[in-house]
Design a protein around this nucleic acid. Structure first.
Lengths: 193, 193
DNA sequence: CCATTATTTTGACCGTGGTCATTTTCGTAT
DNA sequence: ATACGAAAATGACCACGGTCAAAATAATGG
């Protein structure tokens, strides 16, 4: 049976989401406080939690949406022929994911480690990411001894690793690309004697 | 110049740490609340924060200590000869790191993504982990086309990946070992034509 | 032993995420 | 229109991490 969602509900939700996005645009993701969102949306605090399980659920939504836009972009481009090219293509996405430490933390929590029962936007976008990688690898296979799926998972894994190092005090001199390429070379183009 | 630390300071700190460990032993890491720690230690709340930057700093300390014990264990064992053997050796550590979702989250935050100025216990233990892997690989090199250091970083990266998937609703049927071995095989024993 | 300074401790207070019984609004049948 | 049951909104309230000026305690010098 349809849930018979009222128009009011959609409107309130939309107001909350756009208030949140506005704050993020002005002051960054970390600055998004529930009280502020609710103030701008002109609702009571309780209303927020009637629409979203918790603050992070809204972050999940907004960040997931942004990631998906980057993936749309990636999807239109041809498959990379070299690891350097691949790293370059991934850069915009990596830059966004690491634009704030807080953002990267949310992504980590919701991607691999998503404890949610139902899979959220970020987790879904990660699935899509793997799919895109897999498609690339079908078009231009780097390795033939392992499946494109496994290769794709590895790329994902090294992407996370390269991004994580960005926030590590010891390694923040090197750029993400510079860190990613050696991983990708070793993973996708092993030169075994 | 020595800071001339009073004995009282050490005692208070010790009481706080052992109160925290006690709570963790009884009810898990997530149950460790500052109020409860302070209550059991018989100090005021402010004292806690005079000793630790924040709650997570104490978690970092305690978890880092535990990780180090597993690493001590690993250090006494001979280098693994196969990927399956390696995965088996890593299992106790992986099990601890994923004993609670909260623990894994703290570890992620403090390992790769440690934003701290000074490197904390967990981050340090991860450095040690890489060192141990590197030593293994010098003794028993799986690949010769890339450095042991790079191989070690990859092992670490895939370990994280395998653990992260444990918390993913879609993948929690498979055990960590079962997920780790294919990664390690592809990473350490590429069979390129 | 007292005075003075440095260190530690204290606990009232705050910020922010999250809850829930109550009230308001909406859709529908009469 | 009016009544009534269901969905949505409200805001006082709570939990818990974290702050800070003031008080208590320890170390030092005369």
């Amino acid at each position: 049976m349809a849930k018979a969602i009222q128009k009011r509900t959609l409107e309130t939700r939309a107001r909350l989401v756009s208030a949140a996005k506005e704050i993020i645009r002005e002051n960054g993701f970390k600055a998004m406080r529930v009280e502020e969102v609710v103030l701008r949306a002109g609702t009571a605090k309780g209303t927020f939690f009637a629409h979203f399980q918790d603050k992070d659920a809204l972050m999940d939504l907004i960040i997931g949406e942004q990631i998906n836009e980057f993936l749309d972009q990636l999807h239109t481009q041809p498959a990379p022929q070299t690891t350097a090219q691949m790293a370059d293509m991934l850069m915009p996405l990596c830059r966004f994911m690491t634009c704030e430490r807080y953002v990267f933390d949310v992504i980590l929590r919701y991607s691999g480690a998503a404890a949610q029962e139902e899979v959220g936007p970020i987790a879904t976008s990660f699935g899509r990411q793997i799919e895109i990688f897999t498609e690339w690898l079908y078009r231009h296979p780097f390795r033939r001894d392992i499946s494109p799926d496994l290769q794709a998972e590895g790329i994902h894994s090294f992407m996370i690793q390269a991004m994580a190092l960005k926030f590590c005090a010891l390694h923040n001199a090197t750029s993400i690309t510079d860190r990613l390429v050696p991983y990708l070379d070793a993973w996708l183009c092993p030169k075994v004697a």
